[in-house]
């Protein structure tokens, strides 16, 4: 079989570049087999090989997996991620539908306004958000504004604070839905389909590939987000995996020399579930992309 030169070129670039992409992870895997002492004594090369490899760092993670609390962290992370994914996809899809298919005065202005909200640097709202949560009316022992903890340190932080409005997703859906011919809607109307059916039975399946993309990016952002649990909750039973791991690594770095191999292993620990989820979704994602011809 003859290989086309362009394909050979593609193979070389993608493979070499891909190896560069995963190289830090390879380094992490290698470094995680070091003991703290050996790591400190080694002159690090690009591929450090431990003379006395240890799985003690992994064992900490595996051992932790048996821990009741860690299981709670895991399920918190999982539910939180699922919740955000469902919400973000739904709002993105519906929002995209509105801006792609409906006609009303001030649409462009409204769209620009919503797009603008995505450009606000998030840090500015952090302290005001904290105050708002603490003063949430009639929650957590509050009377109208005062008295208790508000919704701080409760599941509401994840329920309310997580999703909001996924304008960038809506933007993406809008772009792709605009390529679906309007005649499809008309035909459905003539067949007597309600708006509800039009949205969910006819337009939704066509947007699945793009929704898969939104779902993956949302899942990844939510999973890696340690800020929300860290700032707005304190109880153990509300922590998520990344937040808990950040804590463990703060023990690893406290007082004196950081235990790099342990930290690196924990870093792998955060990444691994997400990689699994990506692999799981990826088939759907790639499959979706394949028929994402969005038959125009």
């Amino acid at each position: 079989m003859k290989v086309k030169p362009i394909n050979l070129f593609g193979h070389i670039i993608l493979l070499v570049g891909g190896l560069v992409m995963i190289y830090p992870l390879i380094f992490m895997v290698l470094a995680s087999t070091f003991t703290k002492q050996e790591y400190a004594a080694t002159v690090l090369g690009p591929f450090p090989i431990a003379i006395k490899p240890t799985f003690a760092n992994f064992r900490i993670i595996v051992g932790a997996a048996k821990d009741h609390l860690v299981q709670i962290y895991f399920f918190n992370s999982l539910f939180r991620t699922l919740y955000s994914v469902v919400f973000a996809s739904l709002t993105a899809f519906l929002g995209g539908f509105v801006f792609a298919r409906l006609r009303f005065r001030g649409k462009d202005g409204l769209f620009l306004f919503m797009l603008a909200t995505a450009m606000i640097p998030g840090v500015v709202a952090l302290i005001p958000t904290y105050i708002e949560y603490a003063r949430w009316p009639y929650a957590g022992g509050n009377n109208i504004f005062m008295g208790g903890k508000g919704i701080l340190d409760s599941w509401w932080v994840y329920m309310i604070g997580g999703p909001a409005l996924n304008i960038m997703g809506a933007f993406l859906v809008k772009q792709s839905m605009e390529k679906v011919p309007i005649e499809l809607d008309e035909a459905a109307k003539i067949d007597g389909a309600s708006t509800f059916r039009l949205i969910f039975q006819i337009l939704l399946p066509l947007q699945l590939p793009i929704l898969a993309f939104i779902a993956i990016t949302t899942a990844q952002a939510t999973w890696n987000d340690w800020g929300t649990p860290f700032f707005f909750t304190s109880s153990d039973k509300l922590q998520t995996l990344p937040a808990a791991i950040t804590r463990i690594s703060s023990i690893a770095t406290s007082a004196g020399v950081p235990d790099y191999p342990l930290m690196i292993t924990l870093g792998l620990g955060i990444t691994f579930p997400m990689l699994l989820i990506f692999f799981f979704f990826q088939r759907f994602f790639v499959q979706g992309l394949a028929n994402a011809g969005l038959k125009g």
Binding site: L126, I127, Y130, I131, Y133, A134, R135, K149, G150, L152, F230, F231, S234, S235, D236, T246, R247, S250, S254
Partner: peptide, 22 residues
């Protein structure tokens, strides 16, 4: 006990908590 971490994240969380009087 409430574990609030250490160094920069701790300062951020303490500042927010003090502003909210919580």
């Amino acid at each position: 006990q409430e574990d609030w971490g250490w160094s920069e994240p701790l300062v951020q969380k303490q500042t927010a908590a003090l502003v909210a009087k919580q």
